[in-house]
Design a protein around this nucleic acid. Structure first.
Length: 558
RNA sequence: UGGGGCAUCGUCUAAAGGCAGGACUGAGGACUUUGAAUCCUCCUAUCUAGGUUCGAAUCCUAGUGCCCCAGCCA
């Protein structure tokens, strides 16, 4: 069991566990994360993973990884693999406690037989349509199935033949005999088994009957001696059924189901259906597209496991449905990368600068520290030459109020280099600025002139001759609506400019950047060398998140 | 309209009858070789109406609003 960081800050589930420990109801806390392998994990799952593994760590218990693989028509090995990879990447370790609900199929079958013997389950021949008719509605009770009164012997025989494959798919179900008049629809004789000739990723063609979620989940929890079975709010209505099974079966333990509110994040969608649709309709480049809220996507974008854990910690856990502001996530990754990412310089939209008083051909290697607060991170050399690029938006011919970057006659500092003064502006026939003629103060080498004069602006820059050209991908939110799933047509809210690809001019050290490395491009944001796209000597950078931009705020107000 | 849940700053989330606290956001300032980071200051909340109580976010009553449930999905 790994424990990434100490994580107190309690929630209502911790309170329940504290009470159970205090009363002696449980000695060791055991939780589980139970994904269905029918899709990729997303940040909502990360909340659950952090909760369950976090509890195990806090109480020195353990957390199992259990795949809820009871529906072979939807589940695939690809998803099993990706889920394990994602949980590990997030920083959690289930040790030897990897389980599959399908491991329990035999035991589940035996319990079903016992339920039949106890007169509490029966084989029903109603079609799916008929079952729906018989179920009643929210306000009216259901009708009992005509097959409800079959004898134990007949049920046993029929159930055995269901398993043996004697009946066609969908022709029969095994149902619990509970109460067709219950106001809780889950208790109106729920199906336990359906007949489905489908190849299962783990059991192959051994079975043609498969257990339903409700029948499998609680018993699986019990087999694994889970003490606290934590799930999302929509399963609250299932808890009476969860308990009914455990109360009516000779199970080894009766775990406690606890529900919490799932995560919703602004400017994205979280439903598996919608995410799948985005992938299948090529709105994104795949499950791991850096704009996706999947763990694979966030990982490729450059989010760190620590930042996701910190985010989970900050949003807390409760039963209130909420829509968490995505800036919380963005700030979590800024915090992590601010502390740990090397600073480098890269110009995204270049504007040429000619330093008139710098000799042609002269190259000076200047020392530039990698982190302003962590000298132990070392430094690299950046070449200074007569022709440079600066950021286009760092120059204004007619400066706005409070603009203290470069403009005609004004002086700024080039980071780690010299003070630079703009002498004149060169334009093309169309009136576009194509070049700046400037001079530097040779006395100001390193960035501090001996006369002690100050400048308000410091600019990043790169030597034109030495610049490495690399693809830089500027990612923005996938949707331009705070809650795209709310209205119905979420695709109408897709942000058309969620990806901008451009050719950056980067400082030479970046040519050696390896896929998987993080950087701060100073004054721009945090970037990540895409592990999938980067090649040796040809990195591709994803923008994880911009830096906070006070200037944009000021400029926006003017 | 049956049943199950949930209502606290803009957003999340604490407070188990005793000063409504924290984080993020926002506003202002200090510092700054990143308009970043850091530091300081400040603003903003108990769904409504009654009741119990010396005292209510918390207990009671009656409302209101939102979410979930009619898969042989999970």
């Amino acid at each position: 069991m790994s424990t990434p960081e100490a994580t107190p800050a309690g929630n209502f589930i911790h309170d329940i566990i504290d009470a159970d420990l205090a009363s002696g109801k449980v000695q060791q806390v055991i939780t589980r994360f139970p994904p269905e392998p029918n899709g990729y994990l997303h940040i909502g799952h990360a909340k659950s993973i952090c909760l369950n593994f976090g509890i195990a760590a806090k109480y020195q218990g353990r957390c199992h990884l259990r795949f809820d693989d009871t529906n072979p028509t939807k589940e695939e090995q690809e998803f099993i693999d990706s889920i394990m990879e994602d949980v590990r990447w997030l920083g959690f370790d289930w040790g030897e406690h990897l389980y599959f609900a399908s491991d329990y199929f035999e035991q589940l079958y035996a319990w079903a037989v016992e339920l039949i013997q106890a007169g509490k389950a029966y084989v029903c021949d109603l079609s799916a349509d008929e079952v729906r008719q018989y179920r009643g509605t929210l306000t009216e009770p259901g009708k009992e199935s005509p097959y409800r009164t079959r004898s134990v012997e007949e049920n046993l025989e029929l159930f055995g033949r269901m398993r043996a494959g004697e009946f066609p798919d969908g022709s029969k179900t095994l149902r619990a005999k509970i109460d067709m008049a219950s106001p809780n629809l889950n208790l109106r004789d729920p199906a336990l088994y359906r007949i489905r000739r489908a190849h299962h990723a783990r059991t192959g063609d051994k079975w043609c009957i498969y257990p339903m979620y409700d029948w499998a989940h609680g018993q699986s929890d019990s087999i694994e001696r889970i003490t606290h079975s934590i799930c999302t709010l929509e399963f609250e209505n299932h808890r009476p059924l969860y308990d009914w099974f455990l109360d009516n079966l000779p199970v080894p333990a009766h775990p406690q189901q606890i529900e919490f509110a799932r995560l919703n994040l602004t400017y994205t969608v979280m439903s598996k259906r919608m995410l799948r649709e985005l992938v299948e309709t090529s709105q994104v480049e795949g499950w791991d597209d850096p704009r996706m809220p999947t763990l694979a996507g966030l990982r490729r974008r450059g989010f760190t496991p620590a930042s996701l854990r910190a985010f989970a910690e900050r949003i807390g856990v409760s039963k209130r449905e909420s829509l968490v502001d995505v800036t919380l996530l963005e700030n979590a990754v800024r915090d992590d990368l601010n502390a740990n990412a090397r600073r480098v310089m890269g110009v995204l939209r270049p504007l040429k600068v000619v330093v008139e008083n710098w000799p042609e051909g002269k190259v000076e290697q200047l020392d530039a520290p990698y982190h302003p607060e962590k000298p132990e991170m070392g430094s690299r050399k950046v070449p200074f030459t007569r022709e440079l690029y600066i950021e286009r938006e760092d120059f204004m011919e007619e400066p706005a109020k409070k603009f203290f970057r470069l403009s005609p006659g004004k002086e700024v500092r080039l980071r780690w280099a010299y003070f630079l003064k703009c002498e004149s502006v060169v334009k093309d026939e169309a009136g576009e600025i194509v070049e700046l003629r400037c001079t530097i103060d040779p006395e100001s080498k390193g960035g501090t002139p001996p006369d002690g004069r100050k400048v308000k602006g410091t600019l990043h820059w790169v030597s034109a001759e030495h610049a490495v050209e690399a693809e830089v991908r500027l990612y923005d939110r996938l949707f331009n609506h705070e809650n795209p799933a709310a209205g119905g047509d979420y695709k109408a809210h897709l942000n058309p400019s969620s990806l901008e690809r451009l050719k950056g001019r980067l400082e030479p050290s970046l040519e050696r950047a390896k896929g998987g490395e993080h950087f701060q491009f100073e004054r721009q944001g945090y970037f990540f060398a895409d592990p999938k796209l980067s090649k040796d000597g040809a990195p591709v950078f994803n923008r994880v998140v911009t830096l906070r931009d006070t200037w944009a705020k000021i400029a926006g107000k003017e």
